Simulated assay, not measured.
Amino acid sequence: MKKIKDWAKNLKRQIYVLYFAYKHDNVPWYAKVFAACIVAYAFSPIDLIPDFIPVLGYLDEVIILPLGIMIALKMIPKETLAECEKKASYELEHRKPKNWIMGTVIITLWSIIFLWGTIQGYQLLQDKAR
């Protein structure tokens, strides 16, 4: 059980590393975009595969998310990565980072997707009714 807790703690730290890398000037734009997507997905309350689906529900937390983190970390220059790791370690030890702007963006994005899906479903039902 301790091994799983350590793995989860390391995963959380790596997500914060990506968060700080996204904001860093020395990170290429494509790495910033990829890192932002991984961080947004990690903090999003909505999963690609819903958790209530047996076995497959946790696939994103166990395989997809760590794989995305690994790829994103490889895109970041080593010096910048070391700097972001120090910053993430400090933040996790001393205070919880808060970014209301990013949270608002995530909630807005998922709301737009939900609204779009609802409209599409309604239009589909209207077309079938005719």
Score class of each variant (00 low, 15 high):
A72K: 06
K86T: 10
Y90P: 01
P97D: 10
K87A: 07
M102Y: 01
E91I: 03
P77Y: 07
G103N: 14
E93S: 15
M70I: 11
P97R: 03
K87P: 02
K87S: 01
E79G: 01
S89C: 02
A72T: 05
I101F: 13
I69W: 04
L81R: 15
I76V: 13
E91F: 12
K74V: 07
K78G: 02
T80P: 01
K96G: 04
K78L: 11
K78I: 10
R95H: 14
P77A: 02
K86V: 00
T104W: 12
I69T: 08
L73G: 00
K87E: 14
L92F: 07
E93Q: 14
K98R: 09
K87Q: 15
A82V: 12
P97H: 09
M102L: 15
K87M: 15
K78Y: 10
K78T: 09
K96M: 13
E91D: 13
K96L: 12
K96N: 09
I71H: 04
L92E: 07
I101V: 14
T104N: 13
P97Y: 10
E85V: 08
K74Q: 14
W100R: 11
R95C: 03
W100L: 12
P77V: 08
A82K: 14
E91P: 00
C84F: 04
I101S: 05
R95L: 06
E83K: 09
L81H: 11
K86R: 15
S89D: 13
G103R: 07
T104R: 10
E85M: 09
W100F: 11
C84R: 02
E85W: 04
I71R: 07
P97Q: 08
N99V: 02
I76N: 04
E93R: 14
K98M: 00
A72L: 04
M70C: 10
L81S: 11
T80E: 13
R95S: 14
A82E: 13
L81T: 09
H94K: 13
L92I: 13
I69C: 06
M102S: 07
E83M: 07
A88W: 10
E85S: 09
N99W: 03
Y90V: 09
L81F: 09
P97E: 10
Y90W: 15
I101T: 12
L81I: 01
M75N: 04
E83Y: 02
S89I: 04
E85R: 08
C84P: 08
K96P: 00
E79L: 01
M75H: 03
Y90N: 11
S89Q: 11
K86F: 04
M70N: 14
E83C: 03
I76G: 02
L73N: 08
E93M: 11
Y90C: 05
L92V: 03
L81Q: 15
R95F: 12
T80M: 08
A88N: 02
R95I: 00
A88M: 07
E93P: 01
I71P: 06
Y90H: 15
W100M: 11
W100P: 00
E83A: 10
I69Q: 08
N99M: 02
A88V: 05
K96S: 11
I69Y: 02
P77D: 00
H94G: 01
E83P: 00
K74S: 11
K98C: 00
K78M: 10
S89K: 12
E93G: 06
N99T: 02
M70P: 00
M70T: 15
I71G: 07
E85F: 01
N99S: 08
K86E: 15
E83D: 09
I76P: 04
R95N: 13
M75S: 05
